[in-house]
Design a protein around this nucleic acid. Structure first.
Ligand SMILES: Nc1ccn([C@H]2C[C@H](O)[C@@H](COP(=O)(O)OP(=O)(O)OP(=O)(O)O)O2)c(=O)n1
Ligand SMILES: [Mg+2]
Length: 886
DNA sequence: CTTGGAGCGATTT
DNA sequence: TAAATCGCT
């Protein structure tokens, strides 16, 4: 945004950019002083090719070691290099020590003026005020200057290096006096960093961020550089365009290509109109100004990161090919993320609001660049809930695919806020609907038939995933508000949300209930409610549970948890941390736990109702009901969206059968809608593409594969996202897109077909690399190396996969053999393949082999099969760098 | 395996 | 609002 802003008469500023020298290396050298003065680099994951270098010390740079080398390359250039590996935790690289070191530095550098943390190892400082004050006290004798200041570089003065200190003390122009004064401050700050944190850093001092950053990089390490205004034209004349901040990517390349520019000076000579024609008014103006050394991007007052994220890639054969593995890694990421969130809460009192899960994957083992998507939902703190929510988000993406290969996953927590703003009572968002008195009834917390096998942290819900209620939507012309009525209305009166607008008004019948709802700030409140809430705010499940069953949760400090609440009620909270894992043998207990879940924020969003009680309320006290919006009720937060739980293909992929009934049930009970019009945002093209089928309750919403049309007049309306996400999608007659991509049939499925009839055969299978063969300009040699065919189907499937695996990104590219594939021929006995061999195979093949082994086991020793499955799982989630490499 | 991996912030749609 | 993309360390 700053990029598009400028003001012609901005006050002249003194801005500094300070950048740590080879930062991670310094961190490691401080940890292990043995390394000081020695050629050192930091790598992550060294078993493979020596690991990737992410930081290189200056001693090593002097000997030709470059970033973007691998550890092995580095050692070639510099045999005595010290390679330090990044710490790992939860099976992934853990940058905590570098983050902490960065924070240490920031705490020092933020002393003299506004400070913006720009990355883990750099800050911008706005020293305008401090420099103005300092101007009066700049020494007149250069010998009185700080030693670090004396060593400054000043761009554009003729004998540059020799006489910087005399330049500093003899300025007459205001702008240069300002810079000189700032340079003294910066010198002191850098010295403070050196003394207090024992790190060296370099700095640029100029009138804006762009020039300061440019300068900080000009003399490194442990030096500082000034850029007076007058130096800009000379500096830019020779400066490659890409060196300018923000021009290092495609924009810079397009300027080079389309306008034939090479230097910043070239850019300066392009007329404003031309730039604006090419890149729009704002960008054009920004370019015009940046090329003249003008930049008004302010130094923001922010020393903390605005989000916390962690991610991991699973390249090539390490790609995650089944949901248990995905869930395992989601949990590993959640473990780290949760820890960091707790730390932030403790240290800074900040809480995140939004959880974002990103996943890159392909649906076939092609080398085409993977498809990256992200999904988000309100965050609920705690490893288990982050895991459950994030896994739900990821699964929502993957559940469409018969096969998937996840090459990277990431979680991040954003919208960090210092204080919980939403401290108002929930009732301020609600108003009573007159004349409604509904009977409290048991409501028996819904229990699905499938609770035994869920993984840790997953929410147990019924297969409809909506608390056993199902609804129908109909237009409501008359009233602008909404309410719920029906036999399970519960509580002593009904609330509807306060009206905030006219959109999305309709009446919904939910099972036996009729619901009218409307969008309101309640939704935001609920989102906030998953974070910290004011003390003694209570959310409970009065709606479905009725009187006396509400559970209390002490929210503020998180001191009381769900388990506490359960204990307080005199029940054994057998597995407080793992909702939904209780045995199905005790319905009562399970029901209670489900309620707990609701209280803790999950059902509170999707669930039936939400209740506030007074500060002194005790467990068991009668409480009032509050109805949620339909969105919340159905589960606006995708994470725990249990429609996807219903569609969980996980077991299908593990066991192959017996898991389809829920979907059918869901479809059968989805109601139709009268007079409703909706369309998924931005997906009308898909809706019209003829791929549409129909939506059932297992179908996924909001991700581009469903369309709804008006059954009355065939119209499609835009701007119906609200309905779309909520009620309509749930109940309308919709159409679901079939596979857009020709996904290959699951190999596992083929396996099962193939293996069922006869498989006592002891066989050996061979996997070949088609591309490796074609690269040599010859035909496949597969039949030669194959010794025995296990089964025609299997072999065919295997070849097919292997071809796909090594297929060129563009099938149309006939110009030559693809430069892909490892060229490896795998040879193994599928029944007795040893672990280290297995580890080397592409994950998809591993999975298949395991499936084969399981199947065989199932027939021969059914009892042992379970055990094998467990062992296989453990094996499949082992991080690749813990595996043996050959 | 291949735009080295992990992780930020900002803008655009 | 959510999601994708870009630029960067
Ligand atoms: N692609 C990158 C770039 C940087 N970093 C990390 C490692 C670096 O140590 C740190 C700071 O990045 P810099 O670009 O500032 O590089 P250095 O500080 O290592 O070296 P320099 O002295 O050139 O600033 O961020 C990273 O992980 N991946
Ligand atoms: Mg640095």
């Amino acid at each position: 945004m700053a990029r598009y802003q400028f003001s012609d008469h901005a006050e002249l500023r003194a801005v500094s950019h300070i950048d740590m020298d080879c930062f991670y290396v310094q961190v490691e050298q401080r940890r292990n002083p043995e390394l000081k003065g020695k050629p050192t680099a930091v790598v992550q994951y060294n078993p493979w090719k020596g690991g990737g270098l992410i930081a290189v010390g200056y001693e090593a740079r002097a000997r030709g070691v470059k970033k973007q080398m691998r550890g092995d390359d580095a050692r070639e250039h510099c045999p005595d290099i010290n390679l330090v590996t990044v710490p790992t935790a939860h099976g992934k690289a853990d940058l905590t020590i570098y983050r902490e070191a960065g924070a240490e530095v920031v705490s020092i550098l933020s002393r003299k003026g506004r400070c913006e943390r720009a990355s883990i190892d750099e800050v911008y400082l706005d020293l305008t005020e401090a420099a103005k004050e300092r101007m009066a006290h700049v020494p007149t004798n250069r010998d009185d200057l700080h030693a670090e200041a004396q060593k400054s570089h000043v761009l554009g003065v003729t004998p540059n290096v020799s006489d910087a200190s005399s330049w500093l003390v003899s300025r007459t122009e205001y702008s240069e006096q300002l810079l000189a004064a700032a340079a003294l401050i910066v010198a002191e700050l850098r010295e403070a960093v050196r003394m207090e944190a024992r790190f060296s850093c370099s700095a640029g001092v100029a009138h804006n961020k762009m020039l300061a950053k440019l300068a900080s990089n000009m003399h490194k390490p442990a030096q500082q550089t000034l850029v007076p205004l007058a130096a800009v034209p000379g500096l830019f004349e020779e400066l490659p365009l890409k060196k300018l901040r923000q021009l290092g990517g495609k924009l810079g390349a397009s300027l080079e290509n389309q306008l034939g520019l090479n230097t910043a000076g070239d850019l300066m000579r392009v007329p404003l109109e031309r730039l604006q024609d090419m890149h729009g008014k704002n960008v054009g103006m920004w370019l015009f100004r940046i090329s003249r050394g003008l930049d008004d991007d302010p130094v923001n007052d922010r020393v903390l990161p605005k989000s916390h994220g962690c991610s991991k890639t699973f390249p090539g054969r390490n790609a995650l090919a089944d949901l248990p593995a995905v869930r395992h890694w989601v949990r590993q990421l959640a473990l780290e993320l949760d820890q960091r969130l707790e730390t932030d809460a403790e240290q800074n009192g900040r809480f995140a609001r939004l959880l974002v899960a990103s996943v890159s994957y392909h649906t076939e083992p092609t080398l085409a660049s993977p498809h990256g998507v992200s999904k988000s939902c309100p965050i609920a703190y705690g490893v288990d809930r982050i895991t459950a929510d994030a896994f739900g988000l990821v699964r929502r993406v993957l559940s469409d695919c018969q096969a998937f290969y996840v090459t990277s996953m990431g979680l991040s927590a954003t919208n960090l806020q210092a204080t919980p703003e939403k401290t108002a009572s929930i009732t301020t968002f609600l108003r009573k609907v007159p004349g409604k008195q509904s009977a409290a009834s048991d409501g028996g917390a819904p229990t699905g038939s499938e609770t035994t096998d869920r993984g840790e942290g997953e929410t147990a819900l019924d297969e409809e995933g909506n608390g056993g209620l199902r609804g129908q939507v109909a237009a409501d012309e008359k009233e602008g508000t909404a309410q719920i009525e029906g036999e399970r209305g519960g509580g002593s009166g009904e609330y509807a949300e306060t009206s905030t607008g006219g959109e999305a008004r309709r009446k919904t019948e939910v099972g036996a209930r009729k619901v009218k709802r409307q969008r309101s700030p309640l939704r935001d409140w609920l989102a906030a409610a998953s974070g910290p809430r004011p003390a003694s705010k209570v959310i409970s499940t009065g709606g479905s549970e009725g009187k006396g069953k509400g559970l209390e949760r002490e929210v503020l400090a998180g001191t009381a948890t769900q388990s506490d609440a359960l204990k307080a009620e005199g029940r054994a909270a057998s597995e407080p941390a793992e909702c939904g894992r209780t045995g199905a043998d005790d319905p009562a207990l399970q029901s209670e736990e489900l309620r707990g879940d609701e209280i803790d924020g999950q059902h509170a969003l999707e669930g039936v109702s939400c209740v506030e009680r007074g500060p002194d309320s005790t467990v068991g006290e009668e409480c009032e009901d509050v109805q949620l919006t339909l969105e919340e009720w159905i589960g606006d937060r995708g994470g725990t969206d249990s429609r996807s739980a219903a569609a969980d293909p996980e077991h299908a992929s593990c066991e192959g059968r017996g898991r389809t009934s829920e979907n059918e049930k869901g479809a059968a009970s989805s109601a139709e809608v009268a007079g409703v019009t909706a369309e998924p945002t931005g997906l009308s093209d898909l809706a019209k593409s003829g791929h549409a089928d129909r939506l059932d309750l297992g179908g996924e919403l909001g991700e581009g594969n469903v369309a709804i049309e008006d059954r009355n007049n065939g119209e499609e309306k835009a701007d119906s996202g609200f309905e779309w996400k909520g009620a309509l999608a749930e109940t309308a007659t919709a159409r679901q897109v079939r596979n857009r991509v020709e996904a290959p049939k699951s190999l596992e499925a083929l396996w099962q077909k193939a293996a069922v009839p006869k498989t006592d055969v002891q066989s050996e299978r061979t996997v070949e690399d088609q591309a490796g063969a074609s690269r040599e300009g010859r035909r496949s040699t597969q039949s030669k190396t194959r010794k025995r065919s296990l089964d025609g189907h299997v072999a065919d499937a295997k070849e097919k996969l292997q071809k796909l695996w090594s297929k060129a990104p563009s099938a149309k590219d006939e110009t030559g053999p693809a430069e892909v594939g490892s060229g490896i021929t795998y040879e193994f006995d599928w029944q007795e393949v040893d672990q280290s061999t297995l580890d080397e195979l592409p994950l998809a093949i591993q999975a298949e082999i395991r499936a084969a082994q399981r199947l065989q086991m199932q027939r021969q020793q059914p009892k042992a099969a379970k055990k094998l499955e467990k062992a296989q799982h453990a094996q499949s989630i082992k991080p690749f760098f813990q595996r043996k490499s050959r």
